[in-house]
Design a protein around this nucleic acid. Structure first.
Lengths: 70, 70
DNA sequence: TCAAAGAGGAAAGCATACTTTACATAATGG
DNA sequence: CCATTATGTAAAGTATGCTTTCCTCTTTGA
């Protein structure tokens, strides 16, 4: 799974902490997702898409070949 | 979080077991999601949307008011 | 010079998604 | 009547998402 959360965040010019507060998770959770340490829950994905007013698919790209980091 | 996975499944006329195999999870996982016992991971949500050739938002509806069962 | 605040990053533990195994019920058809 | 198929449920264990705490680096300002 890939994501361009940092790009969306840069567009809005907000910090990880601000985004974290907006979607009600810890700052470290946003950090971990941007760094690719893990994928968010479906709920958090919805919250992020809601915040940026886009679809989940606009932020996250699922790679069916799926070797987690290729 | 609400979903109409059973409707999509009915459209394709497949069993929980068949869907489970198609998206590579256990039958109980599909069952649990349909029954609302928990939400799928983002990865599984992508696999399901892929399978039904629709968007995640077509299957799952996030309720921001969020009291889990209202 | 250095204390404080702002930004990002990582480890350990807690919460939740998922699996395996097992059992129960209803519907179908020999 | 009995075997099979589809669904629902549950308990125990594993994997993964998330929080809390701590650390580093940079910037600011007295």
């Amino acid at each position: 799974m890939e994501n361009n959360l940092n790009v969306w965040r840069a567009k809005e010019d907000i910090t990880q902490g601000e985004l974290a507060e907006a979607v009600d998770v810890s700052r470290q959770t946003i950090n971990a997702i941007e760094r690719g340490r893990y994928d968010p829950s479906l709920e958090l994905a919805f919250k992020l898409a809601d915040y940026f007013e886009c679809s989940i698919e606009d932020i996250f790209e699922y790679d069916p070949t799926g070797s987690s980091d290729e």
